[in-house]
Design a protein around this nucleic acid. Structure first.
Lengths: 307, 307
DNA sequence: CTGTTAGCGCCTTCAG
DNA sequence: CTGAAGGCGCTAACAG
C-alpha cells in the first residue's frame, strides 16, 4: 500500500493516525523493506566495491577499516574484494558496476586494468585511470625527500632505495624520484633496488638488498612496512647494528600502532584524511556533484628507534 | 525475452542458432543482468555479511582475507562490517538479513547480541549463539596447554596469563581454563590478568602486567599478537632480557608472516582451515543442507625466539 | 524449441 | 489524505 511506503520514507502527506498505525504494524511484524526491490526501483544499491590487492597487510587493512567506516557514515555498505593479483577478480569491478550490484568502486590495487570508462563512479588511490577518475594520494615526493634528508642529517653517506616497482604507472613511483633527486642534491651515490615483486616475497627482496648493497650502505629507505621489517630482521641476523651501522626508514609505519619493536622511523600517511577524501570524492561522483580529480594528502615523518 | 534468460542461465532448450544470436547481442551491447532484479526474483543475493570487531589487526585481517577468498570460490561476495564495538552496527546484521541484503552472516565479534533467531543463516567463530548456530573454533584448550608446558620445559617457574576477557561467553575462555589446569598440574602458582579491555589498549594492559607480576614472573602467555608485542616492547624498555629472564608465548602469531622481529613463539591457528569450515557450514546452512554445529580446528605451537 | 505472461516488493504517479 | 495501478529487470511456467 502506498501509505506504508510514504510512512517509511517520510515522503508525502500522511495523517498522524495512519502513521501510528503503520508504525505499530511495522514493529509488530518486524517489517523491513526488501533492498533488492528498492534497488531495482531506485537503480541504486547503496553499496560500494572496495578493491584491495591483499587484506592481510598492515597498510591495506588499516586503510580498509577507515574506508569502511567513512562509507558507513555516508550510508554506504562496503563490498570488499581482495584481488590478489588475479585478473579475473580485477575485472569483476566492471561487471559489478554493470550489474548495478554496487554504485561505485574504490581501487587500491596496483594491477592493470586495461581501460576504464571515465564516466563510471570510480576512485583510486595512487593511480591514474583517466582525467576524470579521482585519484587520492599522499605527498609521496615531499615526504620521501624529507625521509632521505633525515637519513643524511643522521650521518648516512650511502643510502639505498628498496621498493617494489608498481606494475602500472603509479604515484608511488614519485618516492623513487624524490630519492634520486635528494641523493643527487647532496652529492651522494644512488643505490636502487626497484623491481616488481609480489606480496609475500619481501624477505627474498630484502636478501637481495643485502647481497647487492649490504656491505656499502649505512642507510636504507624501504617502501613499505613488511619490507622494512624484513630488512631489519636480516640486519640483526647478519650482526649489523641498527641504527649504529645501518639506519632504516620505512614508508607507512602502520605497525607502530601494534607496539611493534623496534619502532621503525617511518613516513606515516594520514589514513583518516585519505579515507575521507576517497569516500567524499566517490560519493560526489556517484551523486553527480562536483568532485576533485586529484587530492594530495600530506604525510609526516615519525622518528623511531631505527635512525 | 525468455530465450535470452535461458541462454544466460543455460537452462531449458535453446537452438544453437538463437544461442549464438543472443551471445552476439550480449557481447555487442555488453549486457549484464541486473542483480537487484535477479535477487528480487530469486530471493537470494549471493552476498554474505562478514562482521569483525576491527580490521586493522593482524588476526582479523588475515582471517577476513581467507574468508573473502573462500566465499568468492563459492560464488558469494563479501560485505564487510567493522563493528568497532558499536551496538548499532552489531544489530545491523539482523536488519540486513531481514532486508535480504545478505543471504547469511559470519560473526567474528565478541560483543553482545541479545538473542538471535537460530534459524537464520549465521555462523560464528568462537561463540555460541544457540544450539543450531554453527560455531567454528580452534583447539584453544589443548593448544594453550601445550604452550604452557612448553614454557615449563624451558624452565619457567612463575608463569602468567595475560588476556582480554570476552564480553560474552566465548571459546576463547578455554585458554584460561587450560592455563589454570596446566599450572595446577605442575604445582605452580597462577598469576592471571584477565579483564575486559578494548582493542587499542594493549599497551596499558601490558603495563598492568608488569606492575602486577613484572618482578616475579619468568614466563608469560599472551592471548594475542598485539598484546605480546606490547609485553615484549615493555620488557626491553625495562631491561628485562627475552627470553633469558622472561619467556613469551603468544596466541595467533600472525605477524610472523610479516617478518616481525623477534619471531615470537606462538600458538598459530590454522586460518585456512577455519575459513574453509566457516564458509562451508554457512553455505550448508543457507542451502538448507546438513551442517556441523561445532567444528574444532587444531592449532599448533611454532617456536620462535622468545622462549 | 520460443514468445508471452505473471509476479518478485517497492515506490511513484494519478485518481478519487 | 489514501487506495489502486504500473513498472523497475528478471525468470519460471505455460501455451503455442
Amino acid at each position: 500500500m502506498g501509505t506504508v511506503s510514504r510512512v517509511l520514507n517520510g515522503s508525502g502527506y500522511v495523517s498522524e493516525e495512519s502513521k501510528s498505525k503503520v508504525d505499530a504494524a511495522v514493529k509488530q511484524l518486524n517489517f523491513r523493506p526488501n533492498v533488492s526491490a528498492q534497488s531495482l526501483k531506485s537503480q541504486r544499491s547503496k553499496v560500494v566495491g572496495l578493491f584491495v590487492p591483499v587484506l592481510n597487510h598492515p597498510f591495506f587493512c588499516a586503510l580498509a577499516e577507515k574506508i569502511e567506516h567513512r562509507l558507513y557514515e555516508n550510508g554506504y555498505r562496503t563490498l570488499i574484494v581482495c584481488s590478489q593479483g588475479r585478473q579475473e577478480k580485477e575485472l569483476m569491478v566492471l561487471s559489478m558496476l554493470a550489474q548495478k550490484r554496487v554504485d561505485g568502486a574504490i581501487f587500491i590495487t596496483h594491477y592493470n586494468l586495461s581501460k576504464v570508462d571515465e564516466a563510471l563512479p570510480i576512485v583510486t588511490m595512487d593511480r591514474h585511470f583517466g582525467k576524470s577518475v579521482p585519484c587520492i594520494t599522499s605527498d609521496n615526493y615531499a615526504s620521501t625527500w624529507n625521509a632521505i634528508e633525515h637519513l643524511i642529517e643522521r650521518g648516512c653517506k650511502e643510502i639505498a632505495y628498496v621498493g617494489g616497482k608498481p606494475a602500472v604507472e603509479s604515484e608511488v613511483s614519485k618516492r623513487l624520484d624524490a630519492y634520486l633527486d635528494a641523493v643527487k642534491a647532496h652529492g651522494l651515490t644512488p643505490h636502487v633496488l626497484f623491481e616488481e615483486f609480489e606480496h609475500g616475497k619481501e624477505y627474498e627482496y630484502a636478501e637481495k638488498f643485502f647481497t647487492l648493497y649490504g656491505d656499502i650502505c649505512d642507510g636504507v629507505f624501504c617502501s613499505g612496512d613488511i619490507l622494512s621489517n624484513a630488512v631489519y630482521h636480516l640486519a640483526i641476523r647478519r650482526k649489523i647494528a641498527v641504527p649504529q651501522q645501518l639506519k632504516i626508514v620505512s614508508y607507512d609505519g602502520n605497525m607502530r600502532d601494534w607496539k611493534q619493536s623496534p619502532n621503525i622511523t617511518s613516513v606515516v600517511q594520514d589514513l583518516d584524511m585519505i579515507a575521507l577524501h576517497i569516500v567524499k570524492e566517490l560519493v560526489n561522483k556517484i551523486e553527480h556533484k562536483e568532485f576533485r580529480k586529484y587530492v594530495v594528502v600530506p604525510a609526516k615523518l615519525i622518528v623511531g628507534e631505527t635512525t
